[in-house]
Design a protein around this nucleic acid. Structure first.
Lengths: 184, 184
DNA sequence: GCGTGCATGTAAGACGTTACATGATTCA
DNA sequence: TGAATCATGTAACGTCTTACATGCACGC
């Protein structure tokens, strides 16, 4: 066991809310975690086999409508493994912003290039922020129960950081516009 | 050429400010880029060989004090490769926060565990934010020239996002403290 | 004489994505 | 009929970190 990858725990966590297929897991990760996490099929399916071999999850063939879908459910051992992971301090986050690398060296080209990159970045995150806002509003409407509070806290992380990104973009675009005028 | 890795361009960028050894490059990346980028020796040294083979950088043996140090300087072709990369739109950033994963599922354990994680996270980023503030103050003192403006914009990104992190931490710690009282 | 920092490098392995293959079902 | 979605899987490849080996220089 390699034990640096968190994939096993992401899967255990999602299965703790109810049985799912690998396909559904992938979609859930993309929908709910995309702003701070990602997994690919190439990780998910082999890991499901491995978790099954370790007795942490149990497969069950879904009979309805004759599909070959296999849903996995968490075992007691699986829940315990998940809980023990939750208690251990998380590793430092990893982030990689090619945008900031380019910003750092952007004096070597015309400001217009960097301005275009910034606009793309800002628009993308404005869209994602709007989605987060929608998602949070939905959750707040539904009766407060279970882990809604925790989920809202996670969404709020996205909202706060994305708002910070947008503020930074506006200031930085202004900075580059001035640079552009200087060069004239 | 694999052409997904940005390592070559990070090195070209740093060498555009003057000749450096692989060792110095690593230290610079850790010092200036650590809040949004990282590279290891295992990437740097092979890449320097590769860049040399492509004629983008030139080695020069540093004679002073007899050390075996090799400094690399950017060639014209290297500068052009760097500039052409700067003009291309950057890839979407990648981020991975194990902390948020744990927050999402934290209802499965006692709030005290998550509170401890949060405190660690907050303290680490408070320290890093203070360092960024120092660094920015240093830069602002020195005569404005060259790429200082761009660098300050990059530092400001770190300051804004870290400040957002800290705000989020305070709110989330309060949330978990309430959870703790409820459980009593 | 010893620890720290300077300096270069590599091998093994872990990690992760991409691209492809396959086939059923659903809906227009 | 054909496109989209559901569903599972893997092989190849690229990326990246870790751990180790080596040796000089410098200051205490």
């Amino acid at each position: 066991m390699s034990e640096r990858s968190k994939t096993r725990f992401v899967l255990l966590g999602l299965l703790s809310e109810g049985p799912l297929t690998g396909y559904e897991i992938k979609k859930l990760i993309d929908l709910r975690f995309s702003f701070f996490w990602s997994e690919s099929y190439g990780q998910i399916y082999p890991m499901l086999k491995s978790l099954e071999a370790d007795g942490l999850i149990l497969p069950e063939i879904k009979e309805q409508s004759g599909r070959g879908a296999v849903v996995y459910g968490l075992t007691l051992a699986g829940l315990e493994a998940l809980q023990s992971w939750l208690e251990k301090p998380p590793e430092t986050e990893t982030v990689r912003f090619e945008l900031l690398l380019k910003m750092y060296f952007s004096h070597l080209t015309q400001p217009s290039h960097m301005l275009a990159h910034l606009r793309g970045f800002r628009e993308q995150h404005a869209r994602q922020l709007a989605l987060l806002q929608l998602f949070a509003a939905e959750l707040e409407k539904i009766a407060d129960q279970d882990n809604h509070g925790e989920i809202l806290r996670v969404i709020d992380f996205g909202q706060k950081t994305y708002t910070a990104y947008l503020d930074w973009c506006r200031e930085t675009e202004r900075f580059l516009q001035k640079r552009e005028e200087e060069k004239k």
